[in-house]
């Protein structure tokens, strides 16, 4: 066998090993109860409870925002987000949070919003009366 083939095989084996290790970084979206039982940092999808107060008071702490999220199982918990309140948060359809449970609260360090797509309204097309 040629050296180059040996090296190619070594690289392929290394590739498979590394790809397998890379899959460890991937997760599935967790729920509150899963986050609680694992105790690890997870990604969680949920909906913002719009009837509960979003507390963000930048004059006290610009890195502290709290609100309530209902997860895929319908369980609702308080979430503390350690950053600014995202723009258009109230209009979000779905929220993806990265964080972990701490006591009864979910402490998140990052957030991704899924917002409804642009609403095609007739008004949009009509020239305003000038």
């Amino acid at each position: 066998m040629k050296k180059i083939h040996i090296i190619a095989i070594v690289i392929i084996i290394a590739a498979i090993a590394i790809l397998l290790s890379a899959t460890k970084d991937m997760g599935t979206y967790a729920t509150f109860s899963e986050a609680e039982s694992s105790g690890k940092i997870v990604k969680l999808v949920g909906e913002l409870s719009k009837d509960k107060v979003i507390e963000y008071n930048p004059q006290v702490d610009p890195n502290y925002c709290s609100f309530h999220i209902k997860d895929a199982d319908g369980q609702e918990k308080k979430v503390i987000l350690l950053m600014e309140k995202p723009h258009d948060f109230e209009r979000s359809e779905k929220v993806v949070l990265t964080g972990k449970m701490k006591g009864e609260e979910f402490v998140a360090t990052s957030v991704l919003l899924k917002c409804p797509s642009k609403y095609q309204d007739e008004e949009l097309f009509i020239r305003a009366e000038s």
């Binding site: 930048p58 004059q59 610009p62 503390i80 350690l82 950053m83 701490k102």
Partner: peptide, 17 residues
């Protein structure tokens, strides 16, 4: 800033008046 969550590195923002 409050030091409640030591294990998280979150002190990224300041509020300016």
């Amino acid at each position: 800033q409050r030091g409640l969550f030591e294990e998280f590195d979150y002190e990224k923002n300041v509020t300016l008046i």
